[in-house]
């Protein structure tokens, strides 16, 4: 019996054949999936649908517009971006992960490998969400403690 997955996935790929194949495949295994083939719609779609994982064609995001990866991560710190590329160069891989990509997968794509990569990315997305939640709460506790210390009369003890 095949495992059914959950999660919202965006596929940003200009090549219709690849985009449609990925959308169909990941939909079949249970994910909520959207495809986008136009660069200008990627960030808006990811935010609008609340996608935790984005598969992004490097050459749809790069060239004159390397900022799309940065925008996606800035917009949602828990989002995981998987770059796919036909031109896997070492400089590209290093640049991608310095910018915060979760993974880089060279084309031609192997659906089984992609499936593992996406599953791993969703696990990472969940961890990032928990980390963000804990971090926000710790910041809040720190803020409250600082306020209490400021308001406490000088020389008083807890």
């Amino acid at each position: 019996m095949s495992v059914q997955h959950t999660g919202k996935l965006l596929i940003a790929e200009k090549d219709s054949a690849i985009c449609d194949t990925l959308v169909e495949y990941f939909r079949q295994v249970g994910y909520e999936v959207w495809g986008v083939k136009v660069r200008s719609e990627i960030v808006a779609q990811a935010l609008d649908k609340g996608c935790g994982v984005i598969i992004l064609d490097y050459h749809l995001s790069a060239g004159e517009h390397p900022e799309i990866l940065d925008q996606l991560i800035r917009a949602d710190a828990s989002a995981c971006v998987i770059l796919i590329t036909s031109y896997p160069l070492i400089e590209l891989v290093i640049d991608a992960y310095r910018r915060g990509a979760s993974d880089v997968v060279p084309k031609p794509l192997d659906l089984f490998e992609m499936s593992e990569v996406v599953e791993r990315a969703f696990k990472q997305h969940e961890l990032k969400k928990v980390y963000g939640y804990v971090r926000r709460n710790l910041d809040r506790v720190k803020q409250l403690m600082e306020e209490e210390l400021r308001e406490r009369p000088v020389g008083s003890h807890a």
Partner: peptide, 10 residues
């Protein structure tokens, strides 16, 4: 190499 960089990334 691309392979070792991707492994490092993962």
């Amino acid at each position: 190499s691309v392979d070792s960089a991707v492994s490092a990334l993962r």
